[in-house]
Every structure is written in structure tokens, then in C-alpha cells.
């Protein structure tokens, strides 16, 4: 793992009216790492994402990407939500190249890349299909490919598998780890599923609401590659117990 920081939050906080959505938070994310953020609703995890993505301006503090200030600016991260947000009027291929179309021209090389990525990850036959023809898991994969081809080194994934059934979700998690390994990106991954946060990550940030804040920063020592056996590894269970305890109102 490369040790240099890709993302830095310095005292970044946000208040909506009387609600402290996110207490001033300081945080560093290493390049190439997979950081999971787990917490109940209202703990400020999506607020943190929206600040990093530039959709929200923080009340104070600074967001730095590759040691450059990017506070309040957009266009520097890949971003994906639980909703796949595929546009129904474009084919799978055109959905994958959507970011390019929105910011300039889609070149032949962009289309070739979209086709290559889709084929590599098992959607090559569906390039000319409209999203309505795809299953939920396939749609989420297309949405992820769309995020991938933006070539942003930092990907913010906000509960991307939250709407999928358990079986599909497990498949998608293993698929995501494969893609992450192939493409060497840095991933910030929000989930409310403790198992998911441990299964995927190098590091788990546990957050808590009222006020929204990070209450624990846990290094995940589990070996890779992760398999179904990982889920019953004693270390897995130890981390899970600690996170559960934190989430349900104890001290670390």
C-alpha cells in the first residue's frame, strides 16, 4: 500500500439550522486504500461525501486532494449512490460514457474504453441495451463502470449496494474488490452494513449521529483476497463486535 495521502479533511464541519450534521472533522486517506464508513442515518456520512464531492460547502475547514485545496469545487472525484442514476434514454454504452458527454466530447477512444470495460466485467452483450432491460445488479455495475471511466483516482461510493438482495450484494462486493485491485483506485465506501464495511475495507471509520462525527478509526488487519470464509474469520468477528458496540452506544 502506498503511504502518501490522497485526501485530507482539515476541520471540515457542517451545520444545518440547529442540527450539527458533521462536527469539524480531520481525516487523512491514503492513496490506493479502501476506507469504509459505517454509521446509522443522520451520522453525517453523506454530508461528508457531499462536501468532498463539492456539492456542499463546509461551514469551515478545508478539503485537500493530492495536497491541493478543492473545497467547494466539483469535478475531481468519482461518485456513486444507492440509486444507480442510469439515464433511461441512453444505452448502456452511452451511460458509461456519460461523464465525458457532460463535460465535452465523447471520443472514439472513450467509446472503445467503455466497450472494453463492459466486456471485461461481463456486460459486453448489453452495450446497446437500454437500462430498463437490466437487472438491479447489472444496473449497479453499469453505474460503477460509469464512475470508473471518469478516471478519477478517488471514488466515493454511497451505499452502492444498499438496494440489492443479499446474494447479489455479496457477488457485487467481491466484484468491486476485483475491480479495485485491477484499477488501483482509492475508495471511500459508505454503508450501514457492518459486515460489508469490514469485508471490503482496509480501514473502517465508525460514525455516530447528534452531532454527526467520527467516533472510531479502526485498522482492518484481515488478509486479502477476501472470500466468503473471511466472514467467519475470528478477527472479522472481533472487529464486528467492536463496531457493533460503538454503534450501539458504548465506548471503544
Amino acid at each position: 500500500m502506498k503511504a502518501s495521502a490522497i485526501l485530507e479533511l482539515r476541520d471540515v464541519g457542517k451545520v444545518f439550522g440547529d442540527t450539527v450534521a458533521l462536527e469539524p472533522t480531520t481525516l487523512t486517506v491514503d492513496e490506493g486504500s479502501f476506507v469504509a464508513i459505517v454509521g446509522p442515518s443522520g451520522c453525517g456520512k453523506s454530508t461528508m461525501f457531499n462536501i468532498i464531492a463539492g456539492l456542499l460547502s463546509p461551514d469551515g475547514g478545508e478539503v485537500r486532494l493530492h495536497d491541493q485545496p478543492v473545497t467547494g469545487a466539483t469535478g475531481h472525484v468519482g461518485y456513486m449512490l444507492q440509486k444507480d442514476l442510469l439515464v433511461p434514454w441512453r444505452t448502456v454504452e452511452d451511460n458509461i460514457t456519460m461523464a465525458k458527454r457532460l463535460t465535452g466530447r465523447v471520443s472514439a477512444a472513450d467509446r472503445a474504453e467503455a466497450r472494453r470495460v463492459a466486456r471485461q466485467y461481463g456486460l459486453g452483450e448489453f452495450l446497446r441495451h437500454y437500462p430498463s432491460a437490466l437487472s438491479g445488479g447489472m444496473r449497479q455495475r453499469v453505474a460503477f463502470m460509469r464512475t470508473l471511466v471518469t478516471h478519477q483516482p478517488l471514488l466515493l461510493l454511497d451505499e452502492p449496494f444498499g438496494a440489492l438482495d443479499a446474494q447479489t450484494r455479496l457477488e457485487m462486493q467481491q466484484w468491486l474488490l476485483q475491480v479495485w485491485k485491477d484499477t488501483e483506485r482509492t475508495v471511500l465506501f459508505i454503508t450501514h452494513d457492518v459486515d460489508e464495511s469490514i469485508f471490503l475495507s482496509d480501514r473502517v471509520l465508525v460514525m455516530s449521529p447528534r452531532p454527526g462525527r467520527v467516533v472510531a478509526d479502526i485498522v482492518n488487519p484481515l488478509a486479502r483476497p477476501r472470500t466468503v470464509d473471511t466472514l467467519v474469520d475470528p478477527q472479522f468477528v472481533t472487529i464486528k463486535a467492536r463496531i457493533m458496540h460503538l454503534l450501539h452506544g458504548g465506548d471503544a
Binding site: A53, G54, L55, T74, G75, H76, V77, Y79, L81, K83, L85, V87, M98, A99, L102, T103, T150
Partner: peptide, 11 residues
């Protein structure tokens, strides 16, 4: 959310 996604892309 779709409009926001376009914003995140820098559109």
C-alpha cells in the same frame, strides 16, 4: 440526484 451527479462530474 442525477443533476447533482452531473455537477460532481463538473458538467
Amino acid at each position: 440526484d442525477l443533476v447533482n451527479l452531473a455537477r460532481v462530474y463538473g458538467a
